[in-house]
Design a protein around this nucleic acid. Sequence first.
DNA 1: ATTTGTGGTATATTTTAGTTACCATTTAAC
DNA 2: GTTAAATGGTAACTAAAATATACCACAAAT
Lengths: 122, 122
Amino acid sequence: MESSVKTDSKGRKKVYNACMEPCAIEKGMRLIGGKWKGSIIYHLKDEPVRFNDLSRMLGGATKKMVDQRLKELEEEGMVIRKVISDRPIAVTYELTEFGRSALKILDDLKVWSETHNIEISK
Amino acid sequence: MESSVKTDSKGRKKVYNACMEPCAIEKGMRLIGGKWKGSIIYHLKDEPVRFNDLSRMLGGATKKMVDQRLKELEEEGMVIRKVISDRPIAVTYELTEFGRSALKILDDLKVWSETHNIEISK
DNA sequence: ATTTGTGGTATATTTTAGTTACCATTTAAC
DNA sequence: GTTAAATGGTAACTAAAATATACCACAAAT
Protein backbone atom coordinates (compact mmCIF):
# COMPACT_ATOMS: atom_id res chain seq x y z
CA MET A 1 0.00 0.00 0.00
CA GLU A 2 1.19 3.42 -0.92
CA SER A 3 0.68 6.32 1.36
CA SER A 4 -0.52 9.45 -0.39
CA VAL A 5 -1.94 12.85 0.34
CA LYS A 6 -5.19 13.86 -1.32
CA THR A 7 -6.56 17.38 -1.46
CA ASP A 8 -10.32 17.73 -1.45
CA SER A 9 -12.38 20.31 -3.34
CA LYS A 10 -11.89 22.83 -0.55
CA GLY A 11 -8.12 22.46 -0.40
CA ARG A 12 -8.13 20.42 2.77
CA LYS A 13 -5.55 17.67 2.96
CA LYS A 14 -5.90 14.17 4.15
CA VAL A 15 -3.38 11.37 4.23
CA TYR A 16 -4.21 7.90 3.07
CA ASN A 17 -2.24 4.88 4.20
CA ALA A 18 0.11 6.87 6.35
CA CYS A 19 2.71 4.77 8.11
CA MET A 20 0.93 4.85 11.38
CA GLU A 21 3.71 3.82 13.57
CA PRO A 22 6.64 2.09 11.96
CA CYS A 23 5.96 0.91 8.44
CA ALA A 24 7.77 -2.12 7.00
CA ILE A 25 10.98 -0.25 6.38
CA GLU A 26 11.03 1.27 9.83
CA LYS A 27 10.38 -2.12 11.37
CA GLY A 28 13.18 -3.68 9.40
CA MET A 29 15.50 -0.90 10.44
CA ARG A 30 14.66 -1.42 14.07
CA LEU A 31 15.89 -4.99 13.75
CA ILE A 32 18.91 -4.50 11.57
CA GLY A 33 19.64 -0.82 11.75
CA GLY A 34 20.44 -0.16 15.38
CA LYS A 35 23.94 1.01 16.04
CA TRP A 36 26.41 -1.89 15.61
CA LYS A 37 23.63 -4.40 15.00
CA GLY A 38 24.33 -4.87 11.32
CA SER A 39 28.03 -5.22 12.01
CA ILE A 40 27.45 -7.81 14.69
CA ILE A 41 25.27 -9.92 12.45
CA TYR A 42 27.78 -9.63 9.67
CA HIS A 43 30.67 -10.75 11.85
CA LEU A 44 28.76 -13.86 12.82
CA LYS A 45 28.11 -14.87 9.24
CA ASP A 46 30.68 -17.66 8.98
CA GLU A 47 30.91 -19.25 12.37
CA PRO A 48 29.99 -18.92 16.01
CA VAL A 49 32.06 -16.22 17.67
CA ARG A 50 32.93 -15.64 21.28
CA PHE A 51 31.86 -12.59 23.16
CA ASN A 52 35.27 -11.08 23.71
CA ASP A 53 36.44 -11.89 20.21
CA LEU A 54 33.39 -10.15 18.82
CA SER A 55 34.03 -7.11 20.97
CA ARG A 56 37.58 -6.97 19.73
CA MET A 57 36.51 -7.20 16.10
CA LEU A 58 34.14 -4.29 16.44
CA GLY A 59 36.64 -1.56 17.17
CA GLY A 60 34.69 1.41 18.38
CA ALA A 61 31.90 -0.47 20.09
CA THR A 62 32.22 -1.01 23.80
CA LYS A 63 31.53 -4.32 25.47
CA LYS A 64 28.38 -2.86 26.93
CA MET A 65 27.12 -2.00 23.45
CA VAL A 66 27.99 -5.43 22.11
CA ASP A 67 26.33 -7.04 25.10
CA GLN A 68 23.21 -4.96 24.75
CA ARG A 69 22.87 -5.55 21.02
CA LEU A 70 23.46 -9.27 21.41
CA LYS A 71 20.66 -9.45 23.96
CA GLU A 72 18.31 -7.64 21.62
CA LEU A 73 19.30 -9.88 18.74
CA GLU A 74 18.70 -12.90 20.92
CA GLU A 75 15.22 -11.69 21.89
CA GLU A 76 14.44 -11.01 18.27
CA GLY A 77 15.45 -14.55 17.38
CA MET A 78 18.35 -13.64 15.15
CA VAL A 79 21.15 -14.93 17.34
CA ILE A 80 21.60 -17.81 19.76
CA ARG A 81 23.79 -17.69 22.82
CA LYS A 82 25.52 -20.94 23.69
CA VAL A 83 27.52 -21.62 26.82
CA ILE A 84 30.15 -24.04 25.55
CA SER A 85 31.90 -24.58 28.86
CA ASP A 86 31.62 -23.78 32.55
CA ARG A 87 34.52 -23.19 34.92
CA PRO A 88 36.61 -21.44 32.37
CA ILE A 89 33.43 -19.86 31.17
CA ALA A 90 33.08 -19.69 27.43
CA VAL A 91 30.17 -18.44 25.40
CA THR A 92 29.55 -18.27 21.68
CA TYR A 93 27.02 -16.43 19.66
CA GLU A 94 25.76 -17.68 16.33
CA LEU A 95 23.11 -16.75 13.80
CA THR A 96 19.74 -18.43 13.57
CA GLU A 97 18.11 -19.11 10.22
CA PHE A 98 16.26 -15.84 10.62
CA GLY A 99 19.47 -14.01 11.40
CA ARG A 100 21.05 -15.60 8.38
CA SER A 101 18.19 -14.36 6.21
CA ALA A 102 19.27 -10.79 6.86
CA LEU A 103 22.77 -11.35 5.50
CA LYS A 104 21.84 -10.66 1.91
CA ILE A 105 20.59 -7.20 2.72
CA LEU A 106 23.66 -6.45 4.79
CA ASP A 107 25.87 -7.66 1.99
CA ASP A 108 24.10 -5.42 -0.51
CA LEU A 109 24.45 -2.55 1.91
CA LYS A 110 28.15 -3.27 2.24
CA VAL A 111 28.62 -3.27 -1.52
CA TRP A 112 26.57 -0.10 -1.92
CA SER A 113 28.48 1.58 0.85
CA GLU A 114 31.82 0.57 -0.66
CA THR A 115 31.04 1.63 -4.21
CA HIS A 116 29.92 5.05 -3.09
CA ASN A 117 32.84 5.45 -0.76
CA ILE A 118 31.14 7.36 1.91
CA GLU A 119 32.61 10.00 4.16
CA ILE A 120 31.37 10.05 7.67
CA SER A 121 31.52 13.15 9.77
CA LYS A 122 31.51 12.00 13.37
CA MET B 1 39.06 -7.98 4.12
CA GLU B 2 37.86 -10.19 6.86
CA SER B 3 38.49 -9.36 10.44
CA SER B 4 39.69 -12.28 12.49
CA VAL B 5 41.17 -13.10 15.86
CA LYS B 6 44.41 -15.08 15.99
CA THR B 7 45.82 -16.73 19.06
CA ASP B 8 49.61 -16.89 19.30
CA SER B 9 51.69 -19.70 20.78
CA LYS B 10 51.31 -18.24 24.27
CA GLY B 11 47.53 -17.96 24.11
CA ARG B 12 47.51 -14.21 23.63
CA LYS B 13 44.94 -12.87 21.29
CA LYS B 14 45.24 -10.27 18.62
CA VAL B 15 42.69 -8.98 16.17
CA TYR B 16 43.49 -8.55 12.52
CA ASN B 17 41.49 -6.20 10.32
CA ALA B 18 39.23 -5.08 13.07
CA CYS B 19 36.66 -2.53 11.97
CA MET B 20 38.55 0.34 13.38
CA GLU B 21 35.80 2.80 13.50
CA PRO B 22 32.80 2.18 11.34
CA CYS B 23 33.32 -0.52 8.74
CA ALA B 24 31.42 -0.49 5.44
CA ILE B 25 28.22 -1.79 6.97
CA GLU B 26 28.31 0.70 9.79
CA LYS B 27 28.94 3.51 7.37
CA GLY B 28 26.05 2.47 5.19
CA MET B 29 23.83 2.26 8.23
CA ARG B 30 24.78 5.76 9.29
CA LEU B 31 23.46 7.00 5.96
CA ILE B 32 20.39 4.88 5.57
CA GLY B 33 19.75 3.48 8.99
CA GLY B 34 19.08 6.49 11.17
CA LYS B 35 15.63 6.64 12.64
CA TRP B 36 13.07 7.54 9.92
CA LYS B 37 15.76 8.04 7.30
CA GLY B 38 14.95 4.93 5.33
CA SER B 39 11.26 5.76 5.43
CA ILE B 40 11.86 9.29 4.21
CA ILE B 41 13.93 8.13 1.26
CA TYR B 42 11.33 5.53 0.43
CA HIS B 43 8.49 8.04 0.44
CA LEU B 44 10.36 10.21 -2.01
CA LYS B 45 10.87 7.38 -4.46
CA ASP B 46 8.23 8.40 -7.02
CA GLU B 47 8.06 12.15 -7.00
CA PRO B 48 9.10 15.29 -5.16
CA VAL B 49 7.15 15.65 -1.94
CA ARG B 50 6.43 18.69 0.16
CA PHE B 51 7.61 19.03 3.70
CA ASN B 52 4.26 18.93 5.40
CA ASP B 53 2.96 16.15 3.18
CA LEU B 54 6.00 14.10 4.06
CA SER B 55 5.49 14.75 7.76
CA ARG B 56 1.91 13.63 7.46
CA MET B 57 2.85 10.43 5.67
CA LEU B 58 5.30 9.47 8.36
CA GLY B 59 2.91 9.06 11.23
CA GLY B 60 4.96 8.79 14.37
CA ALA B 61 7.75 11.09 13.34
CA THR B 62 7.58 14.66 14.49
CA LYS B 63 8.20 17.57 12.14
CA LYS B 64 11.43 18.25 13.95
CA MET B 65 12.61 14.72 13.20
CA VAL B 66 11.62 14.97 9.56
CA ASP B 67 13.31 18.34 9.30
CA GLN B 68 16.49 17.09 10.92
CA ARG B 69 16.70 13.96 8.79
CA LEU B 70 16.03 15.93 5.61
CA LYS B 71 18.89 18.25 6.42
CA GLU B 72 21.20 15.32 6.98
CA LEU B 73 20.08 13.68 3.77
CA GLU B 74 20.67 16.94 1.93
CA GLU B 75 24.20 17.24 3.32
CA GLU B 76 24.89 13.66 2.37
CA GLY B 77 23.78 14.37 -1.16
CA MET B 78 20.83 12.04 -1.18
CA VAL B 79 18.08 14.60 -1.31
CA ILE B 80 17.63 18.05 -2.85
CA ARG B 81 15.51 20.78 -1.36
CA LYS B 82 13.75 23.02 -3.85
CA VAL B 83 11.85 26.16 -3.07
CA ILE B 84 9.14 26.13 -5.71
CA SER B 85 7.51 29.40 -4.69
CA ASP B 86 8.00 32.31 -2.33
CA ARG B 87 5.25 34.27 -0.69
CA PRO B 88 3.01 31.35 -0.20
CA ILE B 89 6.18 29.46 0.59
CA ALA B 90 6.40 26.01 -0.90
CA VAL B 91 9.25 23.55 -0.72
CA THR B 92 9.73 20.13 -2.18
CA TYR B 93 12.24 17.45 -1.45
CA GLU B 94 13.35 14.95 -4.06
CA LEU B 95 15.95 12.22 -4.41
CA THR B 96 19.27 12.67 -6.15
CA GLU B 97 20.79 9.90 -8.25
CA PHE B 98 22.72 8.84 -5.17
CA GLY B 99 19.58 8.82 -3.08
CA ARG B 100 17.88 6.80 -5.76
CA SER B 101 20.70 4.26 -5.65
CA ALA B 102 19.71 3.34 -2.12
CA LEU B 103 16.16 2.41 -3.08
CA LYS B 104 17.01 -1.15 -4.02
CA ILE B 105 18.35 -1.90 -0.57
CA LEU B 106 15.37 -0.30 1.08
CA ASP B 107 13.04 -2.26 -1.15
CA ASP B 108 14.78 -5.51 -0.23
CA LEU B 109 14.57 -4.55 3.40
CA LYS B 110 10.87 -3.87 3.02
CA VAL B 111 10.26 -7.26 1.43
CA TRP B 112 12.37 -9.01 4.05
CA SER B 113 10.58 -7.19 6.82
CA GLU B 114 7.17 -8.05 5.37
CA THR B 115 7.86 -11.73 4.78
CA HIS B 116 9.08 -12.21 8.33
CA ASN B 117 6.23 -10.18 9.76
CA ILE B 118 8.06 -8.63 12.59
CA GLU B 119 6.70 -7.68 15.95
CA ILE B 120 8.07 -4.56 17.49
CA SER B 121 8.01 -4.02 21.20
CA LYS B 122 8.24 -0.28 21.73
C1' DA C 1 -12.57 36.52 13.07
C1' DT C 2 -11.60 31.72 13.01
C1' DT C 3 -9.77 27.84 10.70
C1' DT C 4 -6.55 25.68 7.67
C1' DG C 5 -2.83 25.79 5.09
C1' DT C 6 2.54 26.85 4.31
C1' DG C 7 7.64 25.52 6.36
C1' DG C 8 9.64 25.36 9.96
C1' DT C 9 12.00 26.66 15.26
C1' DA C 10 12.47 26.74 20.72
C1' DT C 11 12.24 24.58 24.84
C1' DA C 12 12.08 20.85 27.80
C1' DT C 13 11.91 16.00 28.81
C1' DT C 14 12.81 11.24 28.09
C1' DT C 15 15.54 7.59 25.98
C1' DT C 16 19.64 5.79 24.17
C1' DA C 17 24.59 5.61 23.43
C1' DG C 18 29.00 5.67 25.19
C1' DT C 19 32.90 5.91 28.94
C1' DT C 20 35.24 4.20 32.65
C1' DA C 21 36.01 1.20 36.06
C1' DC C 22 35.28 -3.02 38.15
C1' DC C 23 33.76 -8.44 39.39
C1' DA C 24 35.13 -13.40 40.10
C1' DT C 25 37.44 -16.89 37.96
C1' DT C 26 41.36 -19.55 35.49
C1' DT C 27 45.63 -20.34 33.17
C1' DA C 28 50.24 -19.50 32.29
C1' DA C 29 54.64 -16.77 32.62
C1' DC C 30 58.42 -14.67 35.69
C1' DG D 1 53.94 -16.98 44.65
C1' DT D 2 52.71 -12.94 42.54
C1' DT D 3 51.89 -10.61 38.36
C1' DA D 4 49.53 -10.57 33.82
C1' DA D 5 46.22 -11.83 30.71
C1' DA D 6 42.36 -14.34 29.54
C1' DT D 7 37.12 -15.48 30.29
C1' DG D 8 31.97 -12.97 30.14
C1' DG D 9 30.06 -9.69 31.70
C1' DT D 10 27.82 -5.51 35.23
C1' DA D 11 27.36 -0.77 37.76
C1' DA D 12 27.60 4.00 37.78
C1' DC D 13 27.88 7.83 35.32
C1' DT D 14 27.87 11.39 31.42
C1' DA D 15 26.98 12.87 26.66
C1' DA D 16 24.14 12.72 22.86
C1' DA D 17 19.94 11.67 20.50
C1' DA D 18 14.92 11.25 20.05
C1' DT D 19 10.38 12.81 21.20
C1' DA D 20 6.58 15.98 22.87
C1' DT D 21 4.49 20.25 23.07
C1' DA D 22 4.08 24.86 21.74
C1' DC D 23 4.71 28.28 18.94
C1' DC D 24 6.16 31.75 14.59
C1' DA D 25 4.75 34.68 10.48
C1' DC D 26 2.23 34.59 6.71
C1' DA D 27 -1.75 33.38 3.09
C1' DA D 28 -6.29 32.08 1.64
C1' DA D 29 -10.84 30.59 2.32
C1' DT D 30 -15.21 30.29 5.52
